[in-house]
Amino acid sequence: MATDMKNKLTIRGLKLWYGDFEALHGIDLDILAGKVTAFIGPSGCGKSTFLRCLNRMNDRIAGCRVEGDVLLEGNDIYAPDVDVVQLRTHIGMVFQKPNPFPKSIYENIAYAPRIHGMVQDGPDMDELVETALRKASIWDEVKDKLQQPGTALSGGQQQRLCIARTIAVQPDVILMDEPCSALDPIATAKIEELMDELKQEYTIVIVTHNMQQAARASDYTAYFYLGDLIEYGETSQIFTAPSNQRTEDYITGRFG
């Protein structure tokens, strides 16, 4: 039981179908609170699909069916009485392509707190916006141009703005779907550094194609292959001495 307390997300027997195609074959996984967990694996292995199960983004896809349990601190997020919209305020998401709203930087941050009625517009909102931007380490770069469009920022800044936007809702978990795949190495390093800071307060789950990024930025790594979770463990163990041969082959670049 003591170890269960540390689990933020507990996934048991998760299966997912797209129509008749079974994309995930029963995943069991514990995602620990306050850690960065990376999902790696070749394209089409189901890691992104699995990530999107964690905040029910797959609900939007027609013909997508999920079986099994995903527990957020013991609460089944697929229970019939769960409000999906509210769930996503607890489990936020950052996407592959930086996707700020075509609005001002300030509005990008203020939007979600406003629609959720967290704070009123005015000084409170100003403070919330500043806090979120500070936590995302982008405040110093944008504090003088809060009214400028978010889309005018560089790619890396846009992605940190998106992270700030997610933080503004004060979620428990932040899901990141290949957040650096469109960024240059410097911007990537900044995001990785940011993840390291954010894990003090949030549980972070990241999907990445870049194994080195998983190695650099995560505490735990899960390797997916063809809809199965092959191996899950501490990143340092996975990257020096994986116990499964398929993990070993993938990590060392033996893609067959």
């Binding site: 983004m57 769930l87 950052v94 700020p100 979600a112 629609i115």
Partner: peptide
């Protein structure tokens, strides 16, 4: 996705 991801209806 951005909007849904932030919990917009």
């Amino acid at each position: 996705e951005a909007a849904y991801g932030l919990g917009a209806s």
